[in-house]
Nucleic acid binder design. Structure first.
Lengths: 229, 229
DNA sequence: CCAAAAGTGTTTCACTTACACCCATGA
DNA sequence: TCATGGGTGTAAGTGAAACACTTTTGG
């Protein structure tokens, strides 16, 4: 690798695909752009990487600044850098995806008067830049990852019912799961801690609440355990 | 995402983890650096991204220039951008990994008089920058990917024996596989085309040669087929 | 004829899948 | 008492894993 200070340089940004879940749909968080290019269009939250921060730090900072989100699950997705993806100049973006529990996080109105809103992933508006492609890649990654990594929990409150968890998987995978088989499988993994609480304010028998046991999971992984479906 | 021309910019590079295979070992291609920083140290092949080329094009160009490799399997791995990973200034690198058949590709002496050589992945020298980490991530990716994507073939000549193929998996996964089960499983997928040729110059019964049928694979994928192990 | 790897089936076991009813609760 | 989802077990089928000997060829 040779050094070369004389070359003009691409700009470097991060963009975040933030997934959330309500009882019906998988949602993605979008920001309405205030300025050109694509003023007024919806886009993924993101922005320039500063010279003194890591890529992940930049992604977290943008999430905080543009949507008031902090301490969320965040993982690098892919880097998009085709010439022409930004109409003005060469911009390379490192895309991340995040999983949040919509209930916990009130997406605040962004500081700089741009709108932030959740859209069902099956019904997103036309997006700025190549963000439609980024979203597509993120969705594929999420579907692929959710079956062999315990990340479904990230979309739920810390305590949840088994039915809620099943719903998470059904929505992401876009297929129905058998209730008894699902419960047996997930419980036999030993990753869920049964709490002594039950759900509140439901007009039927209240379900037991469970909690994902992170410590137990890490411990099992060390012994060769692999999460699956 | 706001525009901001006044910020100083990170430099952008690509680095490639090129995997090859001989009959014993999984190998990685390294280049001995000619200039500082890390002059004399071994490093992954790579270099600066030009403003008018895509990231993948940059990776392919560097492979061609530094190692004489072309038309290889190449896939984006991860982007490494921690401040401080380059001692001189902020450099963000988009890492790719490549799979090549060592026999087919004579790694040429690099044009600028730097050495290129294959090292067993279990015995690599100390590497420049954070390339040890990049290599580690690439190895994990390869191990994870090889079981659910038919990429093992990329490390073999176009025609190969079932034993060679089995060896590929055994070396990458670092565990032994059962011969009969392996052959049954791989043949039942219907991805291998039996040729009428057999291996040459062996001091024992010569094995039949097979070829990976790319067209068949794509066709099966459309019907929902998933490669596995 | 010996050494070396090619090639070939069957049984066992574990896991996945399909499936239906009673229970608890609040309205 | 009715509507709603919570919670539970079993049988059948499918796929994975374990396992050893005969065949072919070149030296």
């Amino acid at each position: 690798m040779a050094y070369s200070y004389e070359f003009p340089r691409a700009a470097l940004t991060v963009d975040c695909v933030v997934f959330g879940l309500d009882s019906e749909d998988l949602k993605v968080l979008l920001i309405q752009r205030g300025i050109d290019p694509f003023a007024g269009k919806w886009a993924l939250p993101g922005g320039f990487v500063r010279l003194d921060e890591s890529l992940e730090d930049a992604a977290r900072r943008e999430l905080q600044e543009e949507a008031g989100l902090s301490k969320v699950f965040l993982e690098q997705l892919y880097t998009f850098g085709d010439p022409g993806r930004d109409p003005r100049e060469r911009v390379v973006t490192v895309a991340y995806y995040a999983l949040v529990n919509i209930g916990d996080h009130n997406v605040k109105a962004a500081t700089d008067a741009r709108n932030a809103a959740w859209f069902s992933v099956t019904d997103v508006p036309s997006l700025a830049f190549d963000h439609a492609k980024v979203l597509k890649v993120a969705l594929e990654r999420l579907k692929g990852k959710v079956v062999y990594q315990p990340i479904g929990f990230e979309l739920l409150p810390r305590k949840f019912t088994l039915t809620q968890l099943q719903k998470v998987y059904e929505i992401i995978l876009e297929r129905e799961l058998d209730k008894r088989n699902f419960r047996r499988k997930i419980l036999e993994m030993g990753l869920l801690e049964e709490t002594d609480e039950i759900e509140q304010d439901v007009a039927h028998r209240a379900a037991r609440l469970y909690r994902f046991d992170e410590a137990k999971y890490k411990q099992l992984v060390k012994k060769g355990f692999m999460f699956e479906l």
